[in-house]
Write a protein that binds this DNA or RNA. Sequence first.
DNA 1: GCCGTTTTCGGCCCGACTGTTTTCAGTCG
Length: 557
Amino acid sequence: MHNIYALMKNHLVAHILNRVADYMELRGDEFRTKAYRRAARTVEFLGEDIEDVAAQGRLRELPGIGENIAAKIEEILSTGSLSLLERLAGEYPVDLDSLLSVEGVGPKTVKLLYEELGIKTLDDLEEQARRHRIRRLRGMGEKKEAMILRNIELARSRISRRPLAYVVPLASRIKSELLELEGVRRVEVAGSIRRGRETVGDIDILVTATDPHRVMDHFTSMDLVEEVVVKGPKKSTVRLREGLDCDLRVFDDEVFGAALLYFTGSWEFNVELRRIAISSSMKLSEYGLFRGDERVAGRTEAEVLEALGLTYIEPELRENRGEVAAAAEGKLPDLVNLSDIRGDLHMHTLFSDGIDAMEYMAEYASILGREYIAFTDHARYIDDVDAYLRAAERIEDVEVLAGVEVNILYDGSLEVPDKILQDFDLVVASIHDPGNITERLLRAMEHDPVDIIGHPTGRVLGSPDPLVDMERVVERASELGVALEVNSNPLRLDLRDTHVRMAVDAGCRIAINSDAHSRGALENIRWGVITARRGWAEPDDVINTMGIRKLRRWLGN
DNA sequence: GCCGTTTTCGGCCCGACTGTTTTCAGTCG
């Protein structure tokens, strides 16, 4: 279904359509803006090659794509660009991306700034603001000018999304601080944190409280707060010292479920729910599900979903990737939980580049409730295999598999002969340098001793994903009975969610491992579980939910 | 520009907040 080249073409088309939407918005053409945005989203989230769809004449079957936009997509696919976009860009020759990235500046303001002051770039904007030219414009004033000046700095130094694992502790701290306030009944972290997205742009928190003003006062004066962006009785936004924004909203108990649903998103998921509501002559908002003026649901998420004819949908699934249709048919997966994880099959100790001894790793793993673990030190560090195996054998806190992590070389061969690998209970094969990933993985899996492919694509958050034809990898892994790893290192999360979904659909097993290099990092497995859940994985898809006996049989030892 | 067990024309999510106004436009989520 997915392959990387398709996604690249899809991305190009979506990008250009979004660009057109920006200009339409600038022109004030509200409805064409929406039409182009919707079409862009459709293409971006389409799970197949847009070129195939075009070749088969099916473009117009896609939601939000009609005669006109279909023709535009054809043009983009055949020429790589769009004449309409060039015309629009000529009409307003401004650096749209930069200007729109200034908080508080939208398309209407960009238009005004360009037409009145000829502002095209961030530098132009800064200069005119410093010269107090902005405040003279209609609808502007001293405060707006000062705000723009402040936010230009932020736009320039904008820190992009943070890893989930970095933001969760921050959100938890705010949550517990709010929970201590008198009259606060409920506090929930919503947004992309609740959905478990691998990176997070801001923190969304919802509360119910008897005295909203008091909550807002406390929230906006927390130690963590750098600056109050907005403050009202129902909604406040602060910029935290860590550099990201945090929103707080207060709701009544009767609508808390609807609000939680709404502010958990995703946006695409919400659109889908609203569509269902409308088709049943109802209206869904953060204040509940309404038929006419009567609220038919709102107290809990489950209540709202049920009233829409849907079973409960776990937050990790709410990305409009088919979960709504599955919920309508009662066919959602029974997702894997952290408590289903019985062992950890990838970790390092003092025998290679880990910082803790086998004993300490085992002790802590046991505290975390793991029934078994596999030591998988790097093969090149293990010069005395027997000593390594004996050391692993002496561990008592948990069942131990004496494993090894072996490098996949550039030609797809392994750095250690199969004959030696056979002495280990478990072999994780992984790539640690870029290039030729697909072919190397396919070749490495052919080696009989290999049980698991570690961090298959080698991607690291913040860098572009390496090119991998995951469809082929997943298919071959499934045939050969090799498991693909979900590496739980919060900067890897590799396989990523969409790849997990491909693996699960293909019947390929996955292993959710910590790849810990220290005791503490054993806890990282929670991030891998979230990623697997986002990929629709059930316990049976995951080899380390098996008991040790069953796992040993699966491994063939 | 798209779309239809409300419609082939007339809608398109909508509420909160701010700064600018003197009743509202723009932005954000």
